[in-house]
């Protein structure tokens, strides 16, 4: 299967999708852990994909989003950023409004 097709399938699998290193239960990198913790803190339903499980997706994703690092967060198919941007929005108290504006359920 064409890697871009697989990437899009993953992105379409949920309203919020987190490409990460490892899993939410066992993050394998500090930046991925930060992203997971923020999404868990806001109690947002999200799908995650462990890029260590598929090297083609890991490399293909960099071209797909023109973003060289992991994690990568997608909301309703739109690339939102990596851990730094998610953390900055969270710390500036912009994230809750952002998700609500996108029609994403937050149950704090």
């Amino acid at each position: 299967m064409d890697v871009n097709k697989k990437i899009e399938e993953i992105i379409n699998s949920s309203e919020v999708v987190l490409f990460m290193k490892g899993t939410p239960e066992m993050p394998q990198c500090g930046f991925s852990m930060v992203a997971v913790n923020i999404l868990k803190h806001l109690k947002i339903n999200f799908n995650s994909f462990d890029v260590y499980s598929d090297e083609n997706v890991r490399q293909g994703l960099k071209k797909y989003s023109n973003w060289p690092t992991i994690p990568q967060i997608y909301v309703k198919k739109e690339f939102i950023g990596g851990s730094d941007i998610l953390k900055e929005m969270f710390e500036k108290k912009e994230l809750t409004k952002f998700f609500l504006d996108k029609g994403i359920q937050i149950n704090k």
Partner: peptide, 19 residues
């Protein structure tokens, strides 16, 4: 926007990010 700003930084690294 933030994504564009961060992409400018990655671009400055001339492909060295994550390599």
């Amino acid at each position: 926007n933030k994504v564009e700003q961060h992409k400018m930084v990655y671009k400055a690294l001339k492909g060295k990010m994550d390599t």
